[in-house]
Amino acid sequence: MDASAVMSTVRLCFRDGVERAIEAAQGESVLAAALRAGVPLVHQCESGSCGTCMARLVAGEASLLPGRALSLLAGEIRDGWRLTCSVAAAGDCAFALDYASTVLDGPQPAVLAATVTALDWVAKTVARLEIAIETADFTFESGQYVRIRVPGTDAWRSYSMATTAKELPRMQFLIRRLDGGAMSAWLRDACAPGALVEIEGPLGSFGLTASKGPRLMIAGGTGLAPMLAMLDTLRQRPGPRLPVLLCFGCTGEDDLFYVDELELRRFWMPNLKTRVALMHRPAGVFDGAIGTAVSLIEDADLRAPGLDAFLCGPPPMIEAARGRLIAGGVPETAIHAEHFRPT
């Protein structure tokens, strides 16, 4: 852009209240100026036909670029509507956009209604809650979580989805039973198929990265949930199937769950290996190790070039895992963690 060009300031006012001011040169379309400034505006044909980039001029003047036939109706123009691809600022001006500033950023969190479709106990201390969300355009990335309001209270609890967006409108969560916990009490006493719940989400940035190396997942207890969603996404994702190692630890045999689900995923994914540990030696048959998810990690696992590590579990597990990985030479930037606190 020629520095000597006459610049105008254009304010872009989004529906969510966000305002961005950009500089536009003479003869430069408002759309081009916005894109140049890194402000994404919705658009398609860039020639005045399709109408996608419609915005309302709310202050100042804008002039039509030469050589354009507009699809706007005369009445729309009278009402202030312009096509940002086909007008240039004539001095400082402002446009109102009929969408939120985040519309091109992907899914945004919202409070939504859902219905319980199933509840079962997959271990003495672990419930699987399945809900169906009523909003058709809700979506999320595997690894993200939602907050669920404990019905009849003001308490909200966070749970990662154990299923992927492909299973929507159904979503599954793994919930650890806590004596005296508000959610646990509701699950025990009142939760049944058909019950209504409120959720907020999607939230969180934990999830698969664009990594081209092997993946190491370390999960403690119900921290397995986002790993399951991520595994199912990896299985369905195009491209070569890179090695994945999942180290899963639970406290005791009453807390151990989903051994069969892991077996199933190993079958579906020849590239997946899993290791399971219990902290307390069980009375029954168990072919895993005694220890923690972290103790399952071997030095050789950490030597793979380009390794990405994903951690989800209670804070002490995350800390222990992080320490183990760093000591094993895994760079901080390759460690992705989701903390949760028992509530």
Binding site: Q236, F267, W268, M269, P270
Partner: peptide, 11 residues
């Protein structure tokens, strides 16, 4: 069926 479940390159 299991062979396809395990070795397909995408559904």
């Amino acid at each position: 069926r299991k062979m396809v479940a395990r070795h397909n390159r995408g559904i």
